[in-house]
Design a protein around this nucleic acid. Structure first.
Lengths: 174, 174
DNA sequence: GGGTCTTGGTTCAAGTTTGAAACAAACTTA
DNA sequence: TAAGTTTGTTTCAAACTTGAACCAAGACCC
């Protein structure tokens, strides 16, 4: 079948998206590198852990929530552990499993960096958007995400990791 | 001043954006790695060159158009040159300058990969969007980009590189 | 119990990106 | 024209990411 090229409108939207994404990632990384000594995705790891009741999560759950590979997460967690911001724990109920658990230091770093991070996000994004545009933003990217998650390996239906297994089944030390 | 945290709506939008962006970058990189043996940004370098009349551009112009650092571009161009997909040329009118020029091989690779790339972009994005959403997407990200470009080093006004200097001032060999 | 398959996670080597420092040509100014 | 400054680009070392290969533990099957 002959290629369905992008229309001029689509091209403009696509280029605008790419440009903004590049600049935004850069701005977030720079800000967090300055104020927390780590790139954005590392900060997100800490933030995600802090949102669970036990402040800990299995590696695979963490990776799937953040949409990164397990390999990438392994290295990131190793670095954060070396810095004392989180700790690894074995999983008692499934001895293959590993948990990443936020330390007090990690939580402190997170709380110190959060205001600056939020301010950056707000300044670069939400200050430019009307409430309707915020809604549009969510709808657009939720749809895209759904499409991208159905594609991957899996059955395309029950593939959402947080529906598959209890993440807290291992957090017995809390 | 006390932190202006994100509202629940903003949080949802932000998370949707982050998730989609991660998955999308992955999907594009994987597709282009498969079909063209290079990551998305490398493909974009070739694509950008192909859009100029002379199929060549100065390093700084290329970097600014793609929103990447000059350092990153230097390494990427070195790799692409090693692969024979582009060639470096000196700039005659300003002997500090370097040009990257698309080779015939580079153009061939680009043309072979383009349909698959466009199809991926379409399948993952535009197939999920109404025409109104395409317009919204452009407006939202154009605004964000403008904000991010005003911030950086520069006077915040005439800082658009393509208005500063003729890029073709060096392309004398065409 | 002994195969086999799957799942959770790490490791390896190669490739990519980063930010700062270095370099060189052009511009400015005295 | 000899500083000193700015601009265009590369280089360096360290950090990060990738995909494939690997290992170990659970699950399944007879």
């Amino acid at each position: 079948m002959t290629t369905r090229w992008l229309t001029p409108e689509e091209q403009r939207a696509w280029r605008a998206y790419i440009a903004a994404t590049m600049l935004l990632e850069d701005a977030l990384d720079r800000q967090l590198q300055q104020e927390a000594g780590m790139p954005h995705i590392y900060y997100s790891i800490l933030a995600t852990l802090s949102e669970t009741p036990e402040h800990r999560l299995r590696m695979t759950d963490l990776a799937e929530q953040l949409k990164i590979t397990r390999s990438r997460l392994t290295y990131a967690v190793a670095r954060l552990e070396k810095d004392g911001l989180l700790r690894r724990e074995g999983c008692t109920s499934d001895r293959r499993g590993s948990l990443a658990a936020l330390t007090d230091d990690g939580l402190a770093v997170l709380e110190r960096a959060a205001p600056g991070h939020v301010e950056t996000v707000r300044a670069h994004i939400f200050d430019h958007l009307s409430p309707e545009q915020v809604t549009q933003l969510e709808e657009i990217f939720t749809g895209i995400t759904k499409g991208l998650m159905g594609d991957g390996p899996g059955d395309g239906q029950g593939d959402l990791p947080w529906l598959r297994r209890s993440s807290t089944g291992c957090a017995g030390t809390g």
